[in-house]
Simulated scan of single mutants.
Amino acid sequence: MRILLTGGSGMVGKNFFEHPQTSAFEVLSPTRGKLNLFDYIAVENYIHKVNPDIIIHAAGKVGGIEANISSPVAFLVENLDMGRNIVMAARNVGVTKLLNLGSSCMYPHEAINPLKEENILRGELEPTNEGYALAKIMTTRLCEYISRENPRYQYKTLVPCNLYGRWDKFDPQYGHLIPAVIHKLHQAKKIGKKEVTIWGDGTAKREFMNAADFADALVYAVNNFESLSPVMNIGLGYDYSINEYYQFIANTVGYNGTFIHDISKPAGMKQKLVDISKQRAWKWQANMEIQEGIAKTYAFYLERFE
């Protein structure tokens, strides 16, 4: 099977390549220098040339709260352009299978948890990452519309919970919670900092899956594409508070200082736990516990940045 994977140099893409079963596929993942996803003509020509059996659209501009707040235009426009170009080019060339990656940011910020797939677009979005969410929703709906107009085109979307792991971004300004906190607590330990600040009161809850588990879900999706729902959450089915994640990471890093809370800072949605009823019926589940995942991610951080 020939797979065209966008975003191969990102965390999801690299974990997909590291999965032991991807050797059974022919995976094409052109670098930005070889394929500009913002250039529709280039995207269409490339897809026509390589003629993939399936496309996995994993490319995207991603980041944590700080990055989304500071650059909403880029998070909206860049993700919108990439999603539209890859999906429309795939349809126009005649590729009948496409797997789009959404985000749990697509859900309304006051939606009842766990978040069910049918709740997308049934309420206002979380303001701190609205631009990113709008772009992801647009691409997801575009996939649904194409499949509705012509069922021969099976364009489906996986909506993962928050992800972390090897090849993550550890910069506190651009990274998500777990990698950013790993960096922050490691540096605090190095310089003997006795206090570390947590944005908000720390009671907001998040669901984090290791990217290696999500890569396994992608492999399973490729091999079981026909039984995959048009839009389906991929998650753990449980979550932890921000305070708990800080403590898990402190235990792994060996940081023994104290935590203080800055309630003037935004903390995002109070909870973001996806409903995994469809995933369970599809017969896939994640296997890595949070402590194991954080330990492996910290080992990668030390290997790459120390």
Rank of each mutant, 00 (worst) to 15 (best):
E124I: 01
E124V: 03
E126N: 10
T128A: 06
N129F: 01
N129V: 01
N129D: 05
N129C: 10
N129E: 04
N129Y: 01
G131T: 02
Y132C: 09
A133V: 03
L134Q: 13
L134Y: 02
I137V: 08
L142Q: 12
C143D: 09
C143W: 05
E144A: 15
I146L: 02
R148G: 05
R148D: 08
E149N: 12
R152M: 07
R152P: 00
Y153K: 11
Y153N: 11
Y155W: 08
L158K: 04
V159R: 10
C161N: 11
Y164L: 04
W167D: 02
K169H: 13
K169M: 13
F170G: 03
F170W: 06
D171Y: 02
D171W: 04
D171K: 01
Q173L: 15
H176N: 13
L177K: 07
H186F: 12
Q187Y: 09
A188M: 03
A188N: 01
A188T: 03
K189D: 01
V196S: 06
G202K: 10
G202T: 08
T203N: 06
A204I: 04
A204T: 09
K205N: 10
R206G: 02
F208D: 01
F208M: 06
F214I: 09
F214K: 00
F214M: 09
A215R: 10
A215L: 10
A215N: 11
D216S: 15
D216A: 15
A217P: 08
A217C: 15
L218V: 06
